[in-house]
């Protein structure tokens, strides 16, 4: 039984090992960037066709922890500026955190037949489950909690809250109907096929700003492509794409 099977397996590994490419630009991007990222990548690749890019999405807090634990990400696009600053403080960043966009929260519903809700109406009796992202490591979750606290609904709605691991999963909870409504990133309402779902943009004065910042990691410090993508994010072209997907331009100081 040993020889033929083992040999065939050995041949298979050989082929698989050969099939793997060398170093690509690895970008860790906040889940709120999921819908916009393919377009940003395409625009960047048009200018730099020889740069293979791979993108890993996740909650910003989780990605920052992974970077601190040695994940090979070259550029970190966070959904806030706290995590990039933390990386810089702990010596895991090679650049100062640079704001590239401002995110917006939206109150989203899965049922296209219903009228858009105002956040104050969340206390209504027909809303059984409300999805937010985990405030502990997802910036949009933290802001969602601030909004509910500002409206004095946090305590009242406690029993109805369900938590997504990141904002993408949170949106999925609403989309699938598992939750009746959710406080998600406005950018995720631009998911293909889901644009008809009712949403209300949340007043930015109800939460601390979602200033989204990026940082080149120590891993990517010597990689020219990391710097190129970093600068590309601030270009007029990238900024225009971001605005089309529900982000606002960062305020320059």
């Amino acid at each position: 039984m040993r020889s033929p099977l083992t040999m065939r397996l050995a041949l298979l590994f050989g082929l698989l090992v050969l099939a793997f490419p060398g170093h690509a630009l690895t970008i860790a991007a906040a889940s709120s960037l999921r819908q916009v990222m393919p377009e940003l990548e395409a625009a960047f690749e048009q200018q730099h066709p020889d740069t293979p890019i791979r993108v890993i999405h996740g909650a910003s807090g989780k990605l920052a922890t992974q970077i601190l634990n040695g994940a090979p990400y070259d550029l970190f696009l966070s959904a806030d500026d706290t995590y990039p600053r933390r990386l810089a403080e702990q010596g895991a960043g090679a650049t100062e955190p640079e704001p590239y966009a401002v995110g917006r929260l939206a109150l989203w519903q899965g049922d296209p037949q219903r009228p858009a809700l105002m956040p104050e109406e969340l206390a209504g009796s027909d809303i059984h489950k409300i999805a937010i992202a985990q405030p502990r490591h997802a910036p949009y979750g933290l802001r969602a909690r601030e909004v509910l606290q500002a409206l004095d609904l946090w305590q009242l709605l406690q029993p109805r809250l369900v938590y997504g691991e990141n904002i993408g999963q949170t949106a999925g909870m609403v989309e699938s109907g598992a939750a009746d409504a959710g406080l998600i990133a406005w950018s995720l309402t631009f998911t293909p096929g889901l644009s008809g779902r009712p949403y209300t943009l949340i007043d930015q004065r109800l939460h601390s700003p979602l200033t989204m910042a990026m940082v080149i990691t120590r891993e990517g410090a010597d990689l020219p492509d990391a710097r190129r993508f970093h600068d590309f994010m601030l270009s007029t072209e990238a900024q225009a794409i971001l605005v089309r997907y529900g982000f606002e331009a960062p305020t320059r100081n």
């Binding site: 793997f20 490419p21 690509a24 690895t26 791979r54 890993i56 999405h57 996740g58 992974q66 994940a71 090979p72």
Partner: peptide
């Protein structure tokens, strides 16, 4: 994590 070509196995890609 979920690094394409490195650690992104099928189960993780489905989750993604």
């Amino acid at each position: 994590g979920s690094i394409p070509g490195e650690t992104q196995v099928l189960s993780v890609l489905i989750y993604d």
